[in-house]
Write a protein that binds this DNA or RNA. Structure first.
Lengths: 214, 214
DNA sequence: TTACGGTTGTGAAATCGTGCACGATTCATT
DNA sequence: AATGAATCGTGCACGATTTCACAACCGTAA
């Protein structure tokens, strides 16, 4: 990484960075060597100027007249997003959603790996979920002193979301992906992103025109 | 609904509307009769002025000096989001994620119901997933002429995402919730929202500080 | 009736994000 | 060496969104 000595990268830029990374990986698989910002626009639908601006927050990665080297750029973006090496992740909630996430092969593509699964249900603790043994959430601090995950995923009912978040933070988690429909209270320095299916559906429902929704 | 004769409601406003709806339902369950915008800020973490501005796109729902009637406001927002009555939803992809979504009780709370589940795997077609029989995705047009869903959920691998979207649109779907990590090409008038776990994790990884990520 | 504490709705200011437009750079060709 | 086509990086203007701040309003109590 080159600049960004300061800060203030817009959140939408970060989200797009992840998109670029995915597309660059595809392009690399297709043996493409070089791309221009308008090629990226072609593939991702994101405006070419936007792409260049996004990168400019972090340095200069392209060559005028040429474009970007696919492998190099992918590696740079991976570095920026801190996914050059495998990122361990822990997950609490071995229900349907948790199970789907642990089994999701797509995680590995961006170097994420779920290295610990926890639940509070004694019928589940000790069982296996894919390649993971489900552990007691009460042991999360101890377990994560081993795993050393800094990212945690919450896939539990809303009612226990805050409690789980607290434990995770105590266990050293700094970033939380929260699937429970609750706003988590977290201390300074901990980042939370919420994913709420129902909220997404509600936004979609809004766009239905009256006569359609009938 | 009262005004909004025009349009142009900011997307972030719509997303927050869904949050308000959830919180209002909780408040109603707690027998709270009236709330002020600062009560809402307390509960949701969303700025009180923001809340009032959001509502102002649709009309005047509060009384100066008093606040908002919880039940009334909830009903109004539900109307705005078109979730006053049950919204049928169809889902393609009876894998782990699809299964989790069909089984997710939270959907019902906002009046969404998955009324049709499809897949292309002959080992799955005909089987039951919770209360739904998995149907052949090839029959989606016919099946949805009965179900009349206008909202569709895509929970299939990226490679077949576009194909599934096309079929859905042919079947009359106007809004798509897409869990496949691909940018879908859709005709004018069809709205898509993407949910990408890996992108979310990547944004979270970015926020880890160097020495932590080691 | 008047005064007051609490609260809304909204214009206007401040902030934030996007996209254009252009100077600068690179390579290929003559 | 000079020309031209392609492409980057970025200042700036625009558009979108958030936040402020205040007039208008409501109910209560003196």
């Amino acid at each position: 990484m080159r600049k960004n000595n300061g800060h203030k990268v817009p959140m939408p830029t970060l989200e797009r960075l992840a998109t670029y990374l995915t597309s660059l990986t595809e392009l690399a698989d297709q043996q493409v060597q070089t791309v221009s910002s308008s090629d990226i626009e072609q593939v991702t639908g994101i405006n070419a100027a936007q792409f260049r601006k996004d990168l400019s927050y972090f340095g200069e990665f392209g060559r005028p007249g040429i474009g970007y080297n696919v492998l190099e750029l992918r590696s740079w973006i991976a570095q920026i997003l801190k996914v050059e090496r495998e990122q361990p992740v822990i997950l609490v909630g071995a229900g349907n959603l948790g199970s789907a996430l642990v089994g999701y092969a797509g995680l590995g593509i961006q170097n994420f790996r779920i290295c610990g699964v926890f639940d509070n249900n004694y019928n589940k603790i000790g069982r296996r979920l894919w390649d993971q043994e489900i552990m007691d959430v009460a042991t999360i601090v101890e377990a994560n002193s081993e795993i050393q995950a800094r990212i945690g995923v919450i896939a539990v009912p809303a009612s226990v979301g805050q409690d789980v978040a607290n434990r995770m933070i105590e266990a050293g988690v700094k970033s939380i992906l929260n699937f429970a429909p609750t706003r988590l209270k977290v201390p300074e320095g901990v980042v939370v992103r919420n994913v709420d299916f129902v909220q997404e559906l509600a936004v979609l429902a809004f766009h239905l025109s009256e006569d359609e929704s009938e």
